[in-house]
Design a protein around this nucleic acid. Structure first.
Length: 483
RNA sequence: GGCGCCGUACCCAAGUGGUAAGGGAGAGGUCUGCAAAACCUUUAUGCGGCGGUUCGAAUCCGCCCGGCGCCUCCA
């Protein structure tokens, strides 16, 4: 089966056909860096990371752009609020760029721990003011935008297709928009491309309309088109940005270029916390740094990928604890497999056909990136492998290696959940540790031979307290880290 | 109020026309000095409810009930 992608624009799955043979362009709305990232960010960026990884796995050269919003995202989308970063800067008595720097670093830290591949380019909005101004100028020239008192607004009535992404009509928009008599907009649903800066405003730039700053939507049009061209493959983001953010992006981009903007629009669903939406005002935020205290980042990643990216995901400690057990089971199989490979035994090939699994997993991923289905196949594989590893027979090392490669191909390369090495899931490191543990295992083995079980159990118990779990098998004692 | 999504076992969660994946939890068993891990068996004649289309529906259509999202900041 060829790759099928659910396109929000058409509301159905479509076969993926790249705009250009040479390269796939993918743009995903990045974070506004005014606070620590939360589990909602994790779901979004893990989802698109897997999409990026799978496209690369299929052999597409992908150029992945994810912006950093460091200006223009207002606290109120009626274009009347303050800039989120300035608000935070004032609160902390820091310069806005210090806030931006701090939370950009924090963001990448968290994303790295989640084993998310860095985008190829992480452009900042403030670094692309000129590009944004150019688009706005062209929109004014073409009659799609108008200037009033140093601000520029996009006139949605001029753009016939406004509403095509979110399925809204202009009439609905008028009904839905907050009535504000003070507004200088011609139509209540018009949106700001450029805002005049008041004297006390810190982040501002010179423009043909005086000192000001860009609106939120325009940065994504400017940066996506700068790096990917006017018509490119995939534009992604959270479903809550479908309207108004992405709708506005389409309007301003297509009006400016007179070409279709992104070909496939992809939206990931939201995270709820114990059944409720996670929101600033609700105060039920779970930051990633907090979540990582309780659960290893890869478990959180696994938990996210156990549901589909377009499904909502409910975050709770119980659900995470259940995911951890399943995750451990999967990783345990790989650990045991590796330990068996290290023994370098001879024997028949393991009677598992990697190609059957491989094609099932590719099909699952090709079906709109169905990671839960792919994980289910990994569990099937895991159970079958465990059967053979437990049957007392010896199998050829090369056939075991083929199985390990299969685990890595999908568990690591595509899904990014299974680590390359044991150390990756551990907080303790170092070869000396491993050698010392092996020494204790050997001593304990000797004690067991002599039936000194009190001593052998003590070694096992004390090691467990230190975060090292021993498991006796026919082939000897295996160990793994639990902290 | 407008637009849209969802409702699958005790919990989480795939499946969108061909007779219900997977994980967790529970029960029984095998292995083991014990434990842990692993494996085996078992847990939905049924997919919110009621109608309809069809040889056939969890999947398509209609109505009803329940939950959620967007329309205000959000990934």
């Amino acid at each position: 089966m060829s790759l099928q992608i659910y396109n929000t624009l058409t509301r159905k799955k479509e076969e993926f056909k790249p705009v250009n043979e040479g390269e796939v362009g993918m743009y995903v709305c990045g974070p506004t860096v005014y606070g620590d990232s939360h589990i909602g960010h994790a779901k979004s960026y893990v989802s698109f990371d897997v999409i990026y990884r799978h496209l690369r796995y299929l052999g597409y050269p992908v150029l992945y752009i994810q912006n950093i919003t460091d200006v223009g995202h207002l606290t109120d989308d009626a274009d009347e609020g303050e800039d989120k970063i300035e608000v935070e800067a004032r609160k902390r008595k820091l310069q806005p760029m210090a806030i931006v720097e701090r939370y950009t670093r924090s963001y990448f830290e968290d994303m790295d721990r989640l084993n998310i591949l860095r985008p190829d380019i992480s452009p900042r909005a403030t670094g692309h003011i000129i590009e944004q101004i150019e688009i706005i100028k062209s929109l004014i020239e073409k009659g799609y935008a108008y200037e009033i008192n140093g601000s520029v607004y996009f006139s949605i009535e001029k753009f016939r297709d406004y509403g095509k992404l979110s399925g809204r009509s202009l009439d609905e928009m008028i009904a839905g928009v907050r009535v504000d008599s003070k507004s200088e907009k011609r139509h209540p649903a018009d949106f700001a491309l450029w805002k005049k800066a008041e004297p006390e405003h810190i982040m501002k730039w010179q423009s043909p309309w005086g000192e000001g700053y860009p609106g939120w939507h325009i940065e994504c049009s400017a940066m996506s088109m700068k790096y990917l061209g006017e018509h490119f493959d995939i534009h992604g983001g959270g479903i809550e940005n479908q309207f108004p953010h992405h709708e506005c992006e389409i309007a301003q981009s297509e009006a400016a270029t007179e070409k279709p903007f992104a070909k496939y629009w992809m939206h990931n669903n939201m995270v709820t916390v114990s059944g409720q939406k996670m929101g600033k005002s609700l105060g039920n935020f779970v930051t990633l740094k907090d979540a990582f205290e309780q659960f290893h980042p890869l478990i959180i990643r696994f938990f996210i990928l156990q549901s589909h990216y377009r499904s909502p995901l409910d975050f709770s400690n119980e659900a995470l604890a259940a995911a951890k057990k399943g995750y451990d089971r999967l990783v345990n199989t790989v650990l045991v497999l590796r330990q068996r490979i290290d023994l370098n035994q001879n024997g028949d090939a393991v009677p598992i056909d990697p190609e059957t699994y491989k094609s099932k997993m590719i099909d699952a991923m090709n079906d709109d990136f169905n990671s839960p289905q792919t994980i289910a196949h990994l569990f099937d594989l895991s159970r079958e492998v465990n059967q053979y590893l437990n049957d007392g027979k010896q199998y050829s090392t090369s056939s075991l290696q083929k199985i390990e490669e299969l685990f890595l191909e999908f568990g690591n390369t595509v899904l990014g959940i299974i680590p390359d090495s044991i150390e990756m899931t551990s907080t303790i490191n170092g070869a000396i540790d491993a050698d010392l543990i092996q020494l204790l295992i050997d001593v304990r083995q000797e004690a067991r031979k002599q039936k000194q079980f009190a001593l052998s159990d003590m070694i096992r118990d004390r090691l467990k307290e230190l975060g090292v779990l021993l498991e006796d098998t026919r082939e000897g004692t295996n160990w793994k880290r639990t902290k």
